[in-house]
Design a protein around this nucleic acid. Structure first.
Lengths: 172, 172
DNA sequence: TTAAACCCTACAAAGCCTATAGGTTTTATA
DNA sequence: TATAAAACCTATAGGCTTTGTAGGGTTTAA
């Protein structure tokens, strides 16, 4: 019951594009470096995402990838489904596949899988790339604040130590 | 993002036991026949379920399997987790595995996976075997009612046809 | 004693995941 | 127009997991 790397890497790649496309098309090479994913593998994921209308490519020199819709109009579910196919715990509850099984009228476990499928899609569709971008910026900002605070603490501690030493010296 | 046959077959097997254990321990052979799952494969699943405390075995002649707890105290989640391991879209949000990834404080996709994990477990834990048994009986009952109604309709139709024929004869 | 069940270990085919490799096409710019 | 950067395409291969199959035990109760 796991996502494959396609879905995980792919979402990170799309978020990376969202965060960096202001400075022009985002190249596979640069995503690869920032995200630590092989260029060759990334290439396949991005082609799939393009074919599914999530991103758009600009070919040739100074080309790269940009989002094909606004961040608010791309959900996490869109990205995952593009790369992994339908999000569903079993085949028989995928849309348009009720014919897969001839025991539908007897099967009760199917009801559970159907509810699970809905819940999964609901969670993933409730987050847009816009949300992820905001979350990222908040986290990064807080992280910077923490870093700064840690530095200040560090400086203060050193200051205390030093001033005490000096006071000691003065007192002495 | 699919369950394996372990989880699907296993849940059906456990439900089968729940439905049939009133007449004594349920044998692998009988589950295999009713559910259309190979005895040998079923055997492995049932051993796993026994080791996880879901079912209990009675060995020897006229042995078989019974549930180890009441139906209301066994959730679908219990069964699936016993057979498939933790229900989680990615490793890094499984309980006690936050150390898997060193990017937790930067990673925002993780937040999504964590919420997805919770939602999945919540759905599966909200259904007990008791619920499944009730659902099964309702479905079966309705199915029988339908069958009976269909039969009655059929008989009525034939009666109409026949009575009309007779009336025609009389009129003639 | 023996039938009928459970128990254990090994293994193998098939499919999917996770890339890797080599080559082609497109395009801005010098 | 040449060049280099970049996306694009197809094939393939190693490894892992799934999905069983097979053969041989062990235990129990009639």
């Amino acid at each position: 019951m796991k996502l494959s790397t396609k879905g995980r890497y792919g979402l990170r790649a799309v978020l990376d594009i969202a965060l960096n496309q202001d400075e022009g098309p985002v190249t596979i090479h640069s995503i690869s470096e920032r995200q630590g994913i092989s260029e060759r593998y990334l290439e396949q994921l991005l082609i799939t995402l393009r074919k599914n209308g999530i991103i758009r490519s600009i070919r040739g020199f100074q080309g790269g990838y940009v989002l094909n819709r606004e961040t608010k109009d791309i959900s996490v579910g869109d990205v995952v489904r593009a790369l992994e196919g339908p999000i569903s715990p079993v085949e028989c509850v995928e849309e348009g596949r009720s014919g897969v099984c001839n025991r539908i009228d007897i099967c009760v476990t199917r009801n559970i899988w159907e509810e699970l499928r809905k819940a999964m899609n609901q969670v993933l569709d409730s987050y847009s790339l816009e949300d992820l971008v905001r979350m990222f910026k908040e986290k990064n900002c807080n992280k910077n604040k923490e870093d700064i605070n840690n530095n200040i603490d560090h400086i203060n501690n050193n200051f205390d130590i030093n001033i005490n030493k000096k006071i000691d010296l003065i007192i002495d």
